[in-house]
């Protein structure tokens, strides 16, 4: 069901209930809608759903979500006034068993529509660093990507500086998010958190992509590496043959003349290929 149809139905129900004077039905519907939306928000943030069996109230669940986000990202998604408002309405609703004045129902619907405005990003989607970094001033962190991290062996020396920059950016995002929730900013906050964690854990991350592998830019760039592996294979083979000859030389020193010629040949060819490899690929790496 599309959101427009859903809204039209709610409008229709409000109209009809107003005419029949059945505010109780409207109150129940408004609370069910709010409860469902809140469950959705909680689950999308990776939390458990509201525990209805133990009588967990909506405003308590909101506080739980806020506490979770504050602990992990130093961000609170629900404003304190919003929680207070829902608390007043919910307690009255429970006390009067659904018989609440129309003004309260209006407030609940208002809260429900406020919840709907929150666009929760897909936390299971790993943000594409290229897209994110291009659209922000965070290009500084681009060398944290696995490929460039490999190239930059001096990254360790810069770690405290990067961590500081991430912290600063996180702080400014938290401030912005406190003023107004924005899903894009929220995604950035999550991305920064993951960067911070990867910096702390120093683990190799996989490059996660959508669609086909062939369309991925990182993959396309990595294709050229196949020639590098070709040369590496050749070097490994020739050096191995040289080692075999050296071992043979130890077994049969009498054949020194012939075997040393062979070993010179193999190690000579290997050296030429190693030089070619270094010239072709190491220069590129720099």
């Amino acid at each position: 069901m599309s959101i427009e149809v859903h809204d039209a139905k709610i409008k229709n129900l409000i109209q009809v209930c107003k005419e029949t004077g059945n505010t109780k039905k409207l109150a129940v519907v408004s609370f069910i809608l709010t409860s469902n939306k809140l469950d959705e928000i909680g689950i999308r943030f990776g939390l458990r759903h509201r525990n209805k069996n133990t009588g967990e109230k909506l405003f308590e669940y909101m506080e739980q979500i806020n506490a979770f986000l504050e602990y992990n990202l130093k961000i609170s998604i629900f404003k304190q006034e919003q929680i207070e408002l829902l608390r007043n309405c919910e307690l009255l609703f429970l006390k009067s068993k659904g018989d609440v004045p129309y003004e309260y129902i209006k407030k609940i619907f208002q809260i429900y529509y406020d919840f709907r405005k929150l666009k929760i990003p897909n936390l299971n989607k790993t943000m594409k660093s290229d897209v994110f970094l291009e659209s922000s001033e965070l290009g500084f962190f681009s060398f944290l990507s696995p490929k460039s991290r490999r190239r930059n062996k001096d990254t360790n020396k810069l770690k405290p500086l990067i961590a500081q920059k991430i912290k600063e950016k996180q702080f400014s995002l938290q401030k912005e998010l406190e003023l107004e929730f924005n899903s894009q900013m929220f995604e950035k906050a999550i991305y920064l958190q993951s960067l911070k964690k990867s910096l702390e854990n120093n683990k190799r991350n996989k490059i996660i992509f959508q669609g086909t592998l062939k369309q991925n830019l990182s993959y396309q760039r990595s294709i050229e590496d196949i020639f590098k592996y070709l040369l590496l294979g050749l070097i490994a083979l020739i050096v191995s043959l040289g080692i075999i000859i050296l071992i043979e030389l130890m077994y049969y020193p009498a054949y020194n003349g012939v075997l040393s010629g062979w070993s010179l040949f193999f190690f000579g060819v290997a050296s030429i290929i190693i030089i070619a490899y270094l010239r072709c690929f190491k220069k590129e790496g720099r």
Binding site: K206, I207, Y219, I223, D225, Y229, L232
Partner: peptide, 13 residues
């Protein structure tokens, strides 16, 4: 090696 590295380094969403 390329096969091995691609599967090690890349992952579908």
């Amino acid at each position: 090696i390329f096969y091995y590295r691609t599967i090690t380094n890349f992952e579908h969403e």
